[in-house]
């Protein structure tokens, strides 16, 4: 166990975990913000896929 099994350890774990969670999920948000750039690569023809012409 990296964090000590004490109340201080619980507080430390919580602070690190909550902070990192915010950072990580913000990172996912940044990546999602870049998603519209994918549309420059081209377009998926949904009708053709649905009809089996892919």
């Amino acid at each position: 166990m990296i964090v000590p099994d004490t109340l201080d350890g619980a507080i430390l774990l919580s602070v690190i975990d909550f902070t990192l969670s915010i950072v990580m999920i913000s990172g996912i948000g940044v990546i999602l913000a870049l998603f519209p750039l994918l549309n420059r690569l081209g377009k998926v023809d949904e009708e053709a896929i649905r009809q089996g012409h892919h």
């Binding site: 919580s14 990580m24 948000g29 913000a33």
Partner: peptide, 30 residues
């Protein structure tokens, strides 16, 4: 709407309040 994604982390403070509360009540950290 990627900016709303951060709320997915903000709404999890309860996890840590309960974690600290459980430790204070004598549970192991796990």
């Amino acid at each position: 709407n990627p900016k709303l994604v951060i709320l997915g982390a903000a709404a999890h403070l309860g996890i840590f309040v309960a974690l600290i509360g459980a430790k204070a009540l004598g549970f192991t950290l796990n």
